[in-house]
């Protein structure tokens, strides 16, 4: 089989496995939607001082969470499970080039991220009246691509420090939950303490969320280039790639 066919075949089955795993589907697809509906219901969709609706911030916030969930959480857990169960070792015993395995995982994560972008944007628009700003669409797409690739790399890197299948969900949650709170995902507004903001700025998620915001901001002008945010996310992604290459293992023990 030629490599494009190999890549498509693997990506198709990776998606199939994801779809048939109820826990993965729930946490990655359903839960972010519930969060979006719930947070807006709890905190209301009032109008902020700037004149924008609260949901204008929740939509990109939840989209950021969805990306992390579809890429980093998803890949960290599935890769750990596959390593511990011997699935990776079996693959390594075949002539399949490792990059095809990695690329198919990336394609699966990208497909889920794309689905989530569509769903979150659609609900934001239909339920909360947050319209997509077409002029900032390139900003959104560039941010999504950089975010998806970088957080996927971080997911693979994270799998290398997770010792067992059982520990995988716990460790990823322990990392992502606090991250959501310091990255403008759940809490929006001006009341966040300065030091939280400083810490949040060290990590890539706050930058991703802020790079996603222009596309939903009714006052956006033109096509903002979020170079600073993109640079930080890409730097983390590069770290993820380097850490993965240094530490990746094909079998347990």
């Amino acid at each position: 089989m030629s490599w494009p066919a190999q890549l498509l075949s693997r990506a198709k089955f990776d998606l199939l496995i994801f779809r048939r795993n109820p826990a993965a589907s729930f946490f990655t697809v359903i839960l972010p939607i519930i969060f979006l509906l719930l947070f807006t219901a709890i905190f209301g969709n009032g109008t902020l001082a700037s004149g924008a609706k609260v949901a204008t911030f929740y939509v990109p916030g939840i989209l950021g969470l969805s990306i992390v969930s579809a890429t980093m959480v998803n890949l960290a857990i599935t890769t750990t499970v596959r390593r511990e169960k011997g699935v990776l070792k079996r693959l390594r015993g075949t002539p399949l080039p490792p990059w095809i395995f990695i690329a198919s995982q990336l394609m699966m994560a990208t497909a889920i991220a794309a689905l989530m972008t569509f769903l979150v944007t659609l609900i934001g628009w239909l339920v909360f009246g947050v319209a997509l700003q077409w002029s900032a669409l390139p900003t959104l797409l560039i941010s999504l691509v950089i975010g998806t690739v970088s957080f996927s790399a971080l997911g693979l890197a994270l799998s290398t420090i997770i010792p067992s299948e059982d520990a995988a969900p716990a460790i990823t949650n322990a990392i992502t939950l606090p991250l959501y709170f310091i990255s403008d995902v759940f809490l929006v507004g001006e009341d966040i303490p300065r030091f939280i903001e400083v810490i949040g700025n060290i990590f890539p998620l706050r930058h991703l969320v802020q790079a996603l915001q222009p596309a939903y901001n009714p006052f956006v002008e033109g096509t903002p280039m979020e170079w600073g945010h993109w640079a930080v996310i890409a730097a983390w992604g590069t770290f993820g790639v380097v850490a993965t290459m240094a530490r990746f293992k094909w079998s347990a023990e």
């Binding site: 190999q6 089955f13 496995i17 048939r20 011997g86 699935v87 693959l91 075949t94 399949l96």
Partner: peptide, 29 residues
């Protein structure tokens, strides 16, 4: 040209038998 049956290697549980063999076949030229 090499086939390996490992001692401890699980199969992706969510795939059917035919799917598991098909996706594995895609690893080979």
């Amino acid at each position: 040209d090499i086939g390996i049956v490992l001692q401890e290697s699980e199969i992706e549980g969510e795939l059917t038998a035919i799917e598991a063999v098909t996706v594995h076949a895609a690893c080979f030229a």
